[in-house]
Nucleic acid binder design. Structure first.
Lengths: 116, 116
DNA sequence: TGCATATTCAACCATTCGGTTGACGATCCT
DNA sequence: AGGATCGTCAACCGAATGGTTGAATATGCA
């Protein structure tokens, strides 16, 4: 699980997986709860979680019959450092990030609702 | 060419493409010269350059019969900001980045040379 | 004009990816 | 014990990915 750049970047390349990571930013979550907002099968989400785990971006811990997913932001460090080598990107503007995040989440919701 | 997170992250997910970006960090390059270190056809490299262009990570300018590739690091900004929202990754350690880069380039060379 | 160089296009191929469904193993609850 | 819930496994499917080769286009040069 050294999480190389290949696996991290390709894990991040999928909007569903990025949405999951954003959700986990708030709190740890059970697999079923992670899946709830998405318009796709539990199996599909389970696969996404597998890919995120493989990339080291989350860990999963079984307690009882529930598996808890925990964000592991450290796995992004090498990728982040790599990118920053290409330019000094302005010191984290958290407001901008919030807006960005909401935008991505909103897109996700919209996508989910077109099917209902 | 708004270069969304999907296209940027998936462009960065391929080691050949990351190596190309690293090369362009030094200077603009012609397509043929970009292709030279790699053990694959010019067509393959041309496709990779197309993907990088699509992601906004490079631009191509034709001068005479030669097409010059130019790095556009700004295309990484939104992706970088997104990742930084998951944690304050230490202020760019350029030395670490240099080492990292050399490592990646070395891997690329090794790969190329195993075939020669 | 005619040849060499630079790059892309078109068609093809094997593999991976993101999704589905149906069956299964674990765990909790009564 | 028996039923409901949580999550994964296995098999399948269509589309996308990363590569190939051979032909085509455009430019530079003698």
């Amino acid at each position: 699980m050294p999480a190389n750049l290949d696996t991290v970047f390709s894990a991040l390349a999928d909007p569903t997986r990025r949405a999951i990571l954003s959700m986990l930013l708030e709190d740890d979550m059970a697999v079923t709860d992670v899946a709830e907002p998405f318009q796709m099968s539990l199996t599909a989400i389970s696969k996404h979680l597998g890919i995120l785990t493989e990339a080291g971006l989350i860990t999963r811990e079984k307690r009882g019959r529930v598996i808890w997913c925990k964000l592991e932001p450290d796995a992004m460090r090498s990728a982040s450092v790599w990118m920053q080598g290409f330019g000094q990107f302005e010191p984290v503007d958290l407001d901008a990030f919030e807006r960005f995040l909401e935008c991505e989440l909103a897109e996700g919701d919209a996508e989910a609702e077109t099917q209902e």
